[in-house]
Amino acid sequence: TTYYDVLGVKPNATQEELKKAYRKLALKYHPDKNPNEGEKFKQISQAYEVLSDAKKRELYDKGGE
């Protein structure tokens, strides 16, 4: 599973699309609303952290993490 899959976006997604997808999923899986989905929330946050940063995203796209 790639970070793009976690957020449900395509690899060519814009920053705005990433932000929108992250917010939607973060609300859905937030531990306050969904106590059993803490791990999913962490995955979503990690994916967004990497993909929202241009340098980290470039490194990730080249095969790094």
Rank of each mutant, 00 (worst) to 15 (best):
T1R: 13
T1V: 11
T2M: 06
Y3R: 01
Y3M: 05
Y4G: 01
Y4P: 00
Y4E: 01
D5E: 11
V6T: 07
V6P: 00
L7D: 00
L7K: 00
G8R: 05
G8E: 07
G8I: 02
G8S: 04
V9L: 07
V9C: 08
V9H: 00
K10R: 11
K10L: 11
P11T: 08
P11C: 10
P11E: 09
N12C: 11
N12R: 04
N12E: 09
A13W: 01
T14N: 07
T14P: 04
Q15M: 14
Q15L: 14
Q15Y: 12
Q15A: 13
E16R: 09
E17S: 05
E17A: 06
E17T: 05
E17F: 02
L18Q: 00
L18H: 00
K19Y: 13
K19M: 14
A21F: 02
A21L: 02
A21P: 00
A21W: 02
A21C: 04
Y22L: 04
R23M: 15
R23Y: 14
K24R: 13
K24H: 09
L25K: 05
A26Y: 15
A26F: 14
A26L: 15
A26V: 14
L27K: 12
L27W: 08
L27Q: 15
K28S: 08
K28V: 09
Y29R: 01
Y29L: 06
H30W: 05
H30K: 06
P31Y: 06
P31S: 06
P31N: 08
P31Q: 07
P31M: 06
D32M: 11
K33P: 04
K33N: 15
N34D: 08
N34M: 08
N34K: 06
P35V: 08
N36S: 11
E37M: 14
E37L: 08
E37T: 11
E39N: 08
E39C: 10
E39D: 12
F41H: 04
K42M: 10
K42H: 11
Q43F: 07
Q43S: 08
I44A: 04
S45F: 11
Q46T: 10
Q46Y: 09
A47P: 00
A47I: 06
Y48T: 01
E49L: 11
V50D: 03
L51E: 00
L51H: 00
S52M: 10
S52V: 07
D53F: 02
A54Q: 10
K55C: 13
K56R: 13
K56A: 10
R57D: 03
R57L: 03
L59R: 11
L59N: 12
Y60Q: 03
Y60F: 04
Y60W: 03
D61N: 05
D61S: 02
K62G: 08
G64I: 15
E65Y: 15
E65R: 07
